[in-house]
Amino acid sequence: MVKKLASISKYLFLCLVLLFVYAPILILVVYSFVDTNTIGKWGEFTWEHYIYLFESEKIMPIVWQTALMALIVAVLSTILGTLGAIGIFYSKRKTSALLSGVSQIPVINAEIVTALSIAVMVSAIGFLSKETYLPLICGLMTLCTPFVVLSVIPKLKQMDNNLYEAALDLGATPTQALFKVVIPQILPGIFSGFLLSVTLSLDDYVITAYTKPSSFDTISTYLYSLNKGGATARIKAAFWALTAIIFLIIVIVVIVANIRAIKAKQES
């Protein structure tokens, strides 16, 4: 009896926390289909908010350019971080400790410090204009690349080092050995580093706001400025629809990834 009560209260606790975590998003999902511009006011079922969102000449371009920016940053961070991780892993102890130490700074630092320091540098040296998008790309890469390194290094540790030596003994050049032996072995780490970079740069507000060109906006910076300036009710409701779509995409990706992982496990 006591045991049963304990297990019930355990699940009750988990459910309460889940309720807290999901309530805001789910309420927006529900209201994105309701013919109203105020949450709490009930109305008829409608697609109106979605139609407004997709016809909006302001929001949709921002959605696409946010996605494009995240993709570019993630690809560059993944390349730089993978090479960096391999280099750090095979360097001498001192070099490797120094590099991974510096690499940790953007991870544990308050993001606003990273953002401000890059903004101050850009303003100090002058020739690197924010309008070139370079500060934005490099700023976000500063945030993402260390996470790629952190995802790849454990895979390098797991790898059998003899494979690389064997490839060299069998006549492969170091470059061939790298691309045909090392990279395939650490691919899962590279992949999770890439996805982490995509989510980090899609999510980012501070670094983006401090390094972006003045006319460029991402979902984060646009919504923040709307919130500060007082958005019209229609645009706010269009963002309910956008939240619902993004949430749906994430749920689908997570489910597909999990089914594939479970299948892969069953096969092996």
């Binding site: 730089l80 090479l83 960096g84 280099g87 095979y90 360097s91 001498k92 590099l99 690349t145």
Partner: peptide, 9 residues
């Protein structure tokens, strides 16, 4: 392989 960390450094 060590040299691969130069760009990151």
């Amino acid at each position: 392989r060590k040299q691969l960390c130069i760009p990151y450094a």
